[in-house]
């Protein structure tokens, strides 16, 4: 680093602005961001975008195709599909955010303990993580729902059980790599306690890559929610979920394909959006590409 370059003033808040600018320069990132914003907008303003109640049954308008009144048509109980899709988005995003946040928190704590704690504890935890990871998701979901009964909480629990081992492993590996670095020794010699070293020095080094990874995991979470609801292991009817809409349309896919399409499209849109956004974020925040 030359003296001239290091003299350029770089206020720290602009680091985020610069990353955002870099994100907006990537067409794929902009596209992903637009899709994600669209889904969030639809979920947040669901009540204003359609006047229909997603759970109101009207037998007189069963299996109606898309029309001016019902933009996406109706399902086998005469419920408005647009309303169900928009409100289903709320469930999907709720599950994605809550379960990802909890998975991250739990994963970080467990990973820090495994990485910084004694060797025997590390080995034990790794063993448990690997055992959890080797469990097929569907089997895990079935087993859990057999115990708890189908509910949104069950979905969130499954996602947490699926995600935590991976996050914890990443945090653990990073922690082990960082705990012997000189700035940690320097912090120790400046009297910092273990808790302080973990919080102030190791966490910030771990959290960046992890958050990006988590944002790329969101499509997986949404797929798990939709999948479990499709199988009747997730949200209970009549609560709308993309998975249950798909299931509703599945039986009549030959006669009235719009129901399955209405359930499927948002899953595709959300998955694509978060994947594109996540991948671009990864590139944008990659320190090796900084200053480009």
């Amino acid at each position: 680093m030359s003296e001239a370059a290091s003299n350029a003033p770089v206020p720290q808040s602009s680091e985020w602005m610069r990353s955002l600018k870099r994100l907006l320069r990537e067409p794929l990132g902009v596209f992903g961001l637009a899709l994600v914003l669209l889904v969030i907008f639809g979920a947040v303003f669901a009540d204003f975008l359609t006047q229909w109640d997603p759970t109101r049954i009207n037998p007189r308008v069963r299996f109606e195709g898309p029309s001016g009144e019902h933009l996406l048509g109706t399902d086998q109980l005469g419920r408005d599909l647009l309303a169900r899709v928009l409100h289903g988005g709320r469930i999907a995003l709720y599950v994605a955010l809550v379960s990802t946040a909890i998975s991250l928190a739990v994963g970080i704590v467990l990973g820090l303990i495994a990485g910084y704690g004694p060797r025997w504890l590390d080995n034990l935890m790794i063993l448990v993580f690997d055992a959890m990871k080797s469990f097929p998701t569907v089997m895990l979901a079935l087993a859990l729902v057999t115990i708890t009964g189908p509910s949104l909480t069950a979905v969130i629990l499954v996602v947490i059980l699926v995600n935590v081992p991976g996050y914890a492993r990443i945090v653990r590996t990073q922690t082990i790599a960082i705990k012997t670095s000189e700035f940690v020794t320097a912090a120790q010699s400046a009297g910092a306690s273990t808790a302080r070293i973990l919080r102030v020095h190791i966490m910030p080094n771990v959290i960046g890559p992890l958050v990006i990874l988590a944002s790329m995991d969101i499509p997986v979470v949404i797929a798990i929610e939709a999948g479990m609801s499709f199988l009747g292991l997730g949200v209970r009817p009549p609560t709308p979920s993309w998975g249950s809409i798909l299931n509703d349309g599945f039986a009549q896919i030959r006669e009235t394909p719009w129901i399955a399409i209405a359930g499927g499209i948002p899953i595709i849109v959300t998955t694509l959006g978060f994947t594109f956004l996540g991948e671009t974020l990864r590139d944008v925040f990659d320190p090796r590409l900084k200053g480009r």
Binding site: Q12, F183, T185, G191, P204
Partner: peptide
């Protein structure tokens, strides 16, 4: 000991590259 290290006894290390946390600004 932790309360002495830092305020009363402090240390400068050999490697200036490693002694600062790379992801936090110098001000932080």
């Amino acid at each position: 000991m932790q309360n002495l290290r830092g305020p009363r006894i402090s240390t400068v290390f050999q490697d200036p590259m490693g002694a600062l946390n790379p992801v936090l600004s110098v001000g932080q």
